[in-house]
Each structure stands twice: as structure tokens, then as C-alpha cells.
Design a protein around this nucleic acid. Structure first.
Lengths: 168, 168
DNA sequence: TTTTATTTTCAATAATTTTTGAAAGTTTAA
DNA sequence: TTAAACTTTCAAAAATTATTGAAAATAAAA
């Protein structure tokens, strides 16, 4: 396979992967493109290589920067902005975990907490099932959150070597 | 808060959560409804409670069954089918991990393997960046897969107690 | 300043995904 | 058998989400 084909296939695959996980396809494609580019690219470069509009490129680049997955680079003597992606997959993973934790887990805790205050007849099976189910979810979410907070701080070598070995 | 409101809020929240993770909103809502129902529900019940059409209910129930998150229950003397959800969150989590691993990780390995065979000039920085980036992703994906395969087999108590303690 | 280069915004449009509902299919009971 | 109860399918419609492109905003250079 030639480089161009391989690049194209990677960008498409990464885009599909993203959309399976609730991430806009183009955003994932921009990320993929930056992942395999040796040098930072300008908005123009990205527009051309992915054949997308200026507005689309801009929005998705900004979103990637918000997620902490892409960095803005300033080249001296150059007026326009250049962008590069974090290529260390462990860092990418931790950054996504961190952001999703903040953006999603936190709001869910709030809702779970609110609805677990539900009032009702303790003899009503609907009430019982509700309280029990929400309780189970709360407990799980709390444990998952503890685990995540540790993963976010962990070092890759420790995580995959030490931990994986411990897990037998 | 009253039970009906709490239920409604839970169903909406679970639906939003699902769509953030690439799962159709209605599918997540059906799952939520079954999670908080003490008794299995019929398709008719689900249609009414979520005010969705028969076709929509049917499709999403089937999808949940495919994911192994919902079970079909047969009541003797009843002709229609009833459905119930797995309420143990650890099992739910493991089931989702198992399915996504099969549906997504496996195809990605295949693509990564194909494109890592790319031919090119070892002096070309584009080629170097590509090979290196894909290599890093492959390595990470392999380790993540090993980890996942262990999680899928793990017991909840062991995972959260023993492991969480070990992670300090 | 004013001009020029570049980035951002956002209403309109396009593309995609989801939902509906009626018809076809299936299964059980009479 | 035939009829009734229930489930599945799928083309059309609706809803949602993403994209465009041109105008407005911003920033640097002249």
C-alpha cells in the first residue's frame, strides 16, 4: 500500500471510530490528519487535505483545542496559526478521560443525587425498583469515578506493566 | 420529587448519556425504562410509556437484546413477549465492553495492521511520521485490549476493592 | 491611520439519522 | 384449516446534526 492510500484509510477509519463514540466525524478526521503529519498544519492545509470548508475546519479545530487534543503553534515570521496533535496515545486517552469525566460524569452525579431523593410509598414495587436501581447506578458511578481519577494520574508504564501484571 | 418525575428525569438523562456515547437516544431510554421497572414490560407498555411508535419500539428492543442488555421473558399463559433489563451495573458495563471490543476494536486492529504495511521512502518525514504514529496507536490498542479482556473476566468486588486499593 | 491577511460567526442548506405507521409476516388457538 | 394476536419490515416523513460560504470581526503590516 502507498502512503497516500494508507493515510486516507487511516483518516476514514479514525472518523468512523469517532462517530461510533459520539464525536463528529470531521473532528475525528482533523485529529487523524494531524496525528500523521510530521509538521503542524494551517487551517488552509486542513481544508485542502480533507476538502472541507473554512467554517467547518475552524469549528472542528477549535473543538479539538477545547478537548486538549490539539495545540496551536505559532511560527515566527508567520501570521497564520498552525496546529499539531498530541501523538502520545496514553496522553490522548487520559485527556479524553479527563474531559469526559468533567463534562459527563459530574452532571450525571448531580441528576442521580437529585432523583435519589424521590419520595414515595416504600411498599410500592415501582418505588422499590426505582430506588434500588438508582442506588446501584450511583454506587457503580462512584467507583468508576474513583478508578478514573486514578487512571488520569497514572503513568503509562505503571498502568500497563505493573497493573496488567497484577491483574494476572 | 415524586416518583413519576424522578423516573422521567432518569429516562431523559440516560437518553442523553447514550447519545453522547454514540447510542441512539430512544434505545437508551428503553433501557432506562426497563432498568427502573419492577416487572418485565411488553412492547405495548414501552410504546405507551415512552410515547413512541410500534416500529421504533420494536427496533430498539431488538437492538438492546443484540447488545445483551435486555432479556426476553416468556410468561406462561401469555402470548406476547415481555422484556427486562439487566440491573447489575457491573454486568451491564462488562457486557458493553465485550460487545464494543468485538464490534469496534477487532475491525480497527485489522485496519491498523493493513496500513502499517505501508511502503515508502524511510527518509520521507511524512512516511516516518505515519509509521511512528500508527505504531504508537497499535501498541496502545494492544495494551488496551489486554486490559479490557481482563476486565471483562473480572469480578466486581475484586476489581473495585482489590484493584482500587492496589492503585492507591 | 488604512490596508491586507486571517479567523470567527451564523443563517441557510445539505446530509444523515431517527421515527412513523401501515402492510406483510409469523405464531398460536380455535 | 381460519382467525386473531402479535411481531417485523421498510419506504416515506420528520427531526436532528453537520456543512457551507459569505459577511463580520480581529489582528498585523504598511
Amino acid at each position: 500500500m502507498q502512503l497516500d492510500q494508507a493515510k486516507e484509510k487511516f483518516i476514514q477509519t479514525w472518523g468512523t471510530l469517532g462517530s461510533n463514540w459520539g464525536i463528529n466525524r470531521t473532528m475525528a478526521q482533523v485529529h487523524a490528519l494531524l496525528l500523521v503529519s510530521p509538521e503542524p498544519l494551517s487551517a488552509e492545509d486542513i481544508m485542502e487535505q480533507l476538502t472541507i470548508s473554512r467554517g467547518n475546519a475552524n469549528m472542528n479545530i477549535r473543538a479539538l483545542i477545547d478537548w486538549g487534543l490539539v495545540y496551536k503553534e505559532l511560527k515566527s515570521g508567520e501570521r497564520r496559526e498552525f496546529f499539531s496533535a498530541e501523538k502520545d496515545m496514553w496522553k490522548v486517552f487520559k485527556q479524553i478521560a479527563k474531559e469526559r469525566r468533567k463534562r459527563e460524569l459530574e452532571p450525571i452525579f448531580k441528576v442521580l443525587n437529585d432523583i435519589s431523593q424521590v419520595e414515595g410509598d416504600p411498599k410500592d414495587p415501582n418505588y422499590q425498583a426505582f430506588v434500588q436501581s438508582i442506588g446501584g447506578i450511583q454506587k457503580f458511578a462512584g467507583q468508576a469515578d474513583d478508578f478514573l481519577s486514578k487512571v488520569i494520574k497514572a503513568d503509562e508504564h505503571w498502568f500497563f506493566n505493573t497493573l496488567l501484571r497484577f491483574m494476572k
